[in-house]
Design a binder for these strands. Structure first.
Lengths: 223, 223
DNA sequence: TCAGTAAGAGTCACAATGACTAGAACAGAG
DNA sequence: CTCTGTTCTAGTCATTGTGACTCTTACTGA
């Protein structure tokens, strides 16, 4: 009876690769379902919407409860409401997507029921979650090109090479370092600090920092 | 108890202006509320989600029932779910936005409870509908620049001047006719027919047609 | 026949971008 | 200490897309 309203989140982070030649792998944490339908299958973290809480707040809370992660960026993805997307009654899912810093994601505990998967090598998930992740991936890759959200994968300060690696890993391309530098430095939202990273094996790169008065993405009137 | 799920739609069409110097006005049909809360106020057409129907289907149906319009383009805008957006219990609204052909919108019946308003001269609406329309407008103006949805305001065939007027009216800019032509003709999705519009006061312009195998907008995996 | 207006083709300068070159600055091997 | 390999960083060059602008063509109505 009635329509159930759920809130789920597709969480992205860049995790270290087993092969050290790769710079990292775009990954997604999934939770194993303990109940029918789809018991045993992996699925997106989430749950029923809370009556006393905004949708984004519910997304952030569920996200934290299941993975202990705090997102650096959170945005609504889509409301999935096809009639046949669940086996047990009608469910409308308001899905969010989130970006988590690599540093945090590394510490994150994995367990029997929570595990990280490479974003484009997912198993068969519960419900229509494969399709949802596919759409989230598309949005992430698009938005990376015309906004500043790449920063959300990194920390307060970062080198241009780190920022370039984020783009290369997520968008699965290889970018010319010199051209990438030119483009980033043309934006006033990125400021060079006078610090450098010492201790590396090569010429010490300069640290950059995002102007915190500039928001990561322009979502119009929604802020 | 429980969260009510509603579906509403922001409908756009270009309607003739009273001043013949203007080419048209971007307009939105609104319906007058007959019940509390906000009885007498104008609001977006919509209603409760139907358990047996997809969200987009509900949006299109409600849209047709209240305005007798069939949209040429329909896309989900956002799920609004703040806790304080309704006076009567918690309501989550999945909002769509739609484009209707000018030809259809002209025929559309206005009545005591349905009326068209210029998109940026709206009265104070019920609930948070002013904010919703503002966001829909922002999305429309953005999307017009990087997709082919402008065509949805027109008919099967159209002149380049008509298409340019759509851009000028919606984006509130004035565009150079020659540059606009160059840009449109560089896209393979627009094909020139060998027909022309005769009977005008000036040199008869050629009719163009959109390649129907190309979709109006690229919404990724959602199609 | 002329004036006014829009269609349609073309030119020019400038900005953004991809491909590429080259010097500077480091660590570690010899 | 010197050499080598790598990366950081600053440049050049050619191509492309775009805004501003000019000019000719084709029509109607005065």
């Amino acid at each position: 009876m009635g329509i159930d309203l759920a809130v789920s989140t597709v969480i992205f982070a860049i995790r270290p690769a087993s092969d050290p030649a790769e710079r990292g792998i775009l990954s997604i944490p999934l939770v194993r379902r303990t109940r029918e339908p789809f018991a045993g299958r992996w699925s997106l973290p989430g749950g029923a919407a809370d009556e006393a809480e905004g949708l984004a707040d519910t997304a952030a809370r569920k996200l934290y409860e299941t993975t202990q992660l705090a997102p650096a960026y959170l945005e609504q993805l889509y409301a999935f409401g096809d009639t046949d997307r669940s086996w047990s009654g009608r469910v409308v899912s308001v899905v969010y997507w989130a970006l988590v810093r690599a540093e945090l994601a590394e510490q994150a505990a994995e367990g029997e029921n929570v595990r990280w998967f490479p974003a484009d090598e997912l198993p068969e998930l519960a419900f229509d979650h494969n399709r949802i992740v596919e759409y989230a991936l598309w949005r992430l890759r698009n938005k990376l090109e015309y906004s500043r959200i790449a920063q959300a994968f990194l920390g307060e300060t970062f080198t241009l090479t780190q920022l370039r690696h984020v783009h290369e890993i997520v968008r699965q391309v290889s970018l010319d370092p010199a051209n990438f530098r030119r483009q980033i430095e043309s934006s006033p939202a990125v400021v060079a600090t006078d610090e450098v990273v010492s201790g590396g094996r090569h010429r010490p790169p300069r640290l950059y920092r995002y102007d915190t008065t500039v928001q990561l993405a322009d979502n119009g009137p929604l802020g």
